[in-house]
Amino acid sequence: MPAASPFRHPPLQAAIVDLDGTMVDTLGDFCAALDRVADELALPRVAAAEVERMVGKGSEHLIRSVLAHVGADAGRFEAAWASYQRSYAEVNGRHARVYPGVVQGLEQLRARGLALACLTNKPTAFARELLQAKGLAAFFAQVFGGDAFARKKPDPLPLLATCQALGSAPARTLMLGDSSNDAQAARAAGCPVVLVTYGYNHGRPVREVDADGWVDSLAEAAALL
């Protein structure tokens, strides 16, 4: 499917790029870590299709969602959270792959003179490690995770704080993501937003989300600008 038509926006200064589901397919990492948690706590494992619907709102939300899905007591959160932190640190990047077109897209955005930041709901340390492991770290002037600010996407605070760190105005800062979390945060922050069509959008078609455009590859994003 071709990219959406170019949209009108002020001249861009920067771009903020989501990580999971936008640049890197990390579903395998999530599943591997959650399988370890399930085995350690004697809980049922969760199918990948179900995990895919749960990711995107931060690790704490993921763990609470998994516990609810398997019918476990919410009081087991602390044990599950500690197990997940250990498990994810061990598997981070091992079962993940960079989506086709990501490197080309980042190169094109950088060639246009845009400052780039990675903003994700994944914990910052895990995000930095993953970007480094996948050869993407050098593209980004700033990297912020879900623990970097008081609130996570879809709240606009992370986007506004990232714009401030980049020295860019929100109206001149493009958000590139894969889900309603990214779009809602961008709309509330006053940033234009383009979504990829292949990521994790909580089981919903991404073209239903209010956005300025959709692309099948990050390599198509520059053509919209």
Rank of each mutant, 00 (worst) to 15 (best):
M1F: 12
S5R: 15
F7P: 04
H9M: 02
I16Q: 07
T22P: 00
L27Y: 06
A32N: 06
P44H: 02
R45F: 13
R45K: 10
R45Q: 11
V46E: 13
A48H: 08
A48D: 15
A49K: 12
A49S: 15
V51C: 08
V55Y: 06
V55F: 05
G58P: 03
E60C: 00
L62Y: 03
L62A: 03
S65A: 13
L67P: 05
G71W: 05
A72K: 00
D73Q: 12
A79S: 03
A82G: 09
Q85A: 02
Q85P: 00
R86V: 01
S87W: 09
Y88I: 08
N92D: 11
G93W: 00
R94G: 03
G101A: 02
Q104R: 12
G105A: 02
L106K: 00
Q108D: 07
L109M: 11
L109R: 10
A111L: 13
R112P: 08
L114F: 01
L119F: 05
N121F: 02
T124V: 11
F126A: 14
A127C: 06
K134V: 11
L136Q: 11
F139P: 13
F139S: 09
F140C: 07
A141R: 14
G145T: 09
D147Q: 02
R151Q: 15
D155C: 02
P158M: 03
S168E: 06
P170D: 10
P170W: 10
R172C: 10
S180E: 14
D182H: 10
A183T: 10
A183H: 07
V193I: 13
V194G: 10
L195R: 12
V196C: 09
Y198R: 07
Y200N: 07
G213A: 05
D216H: 09
L218M: 04
E220K: 09
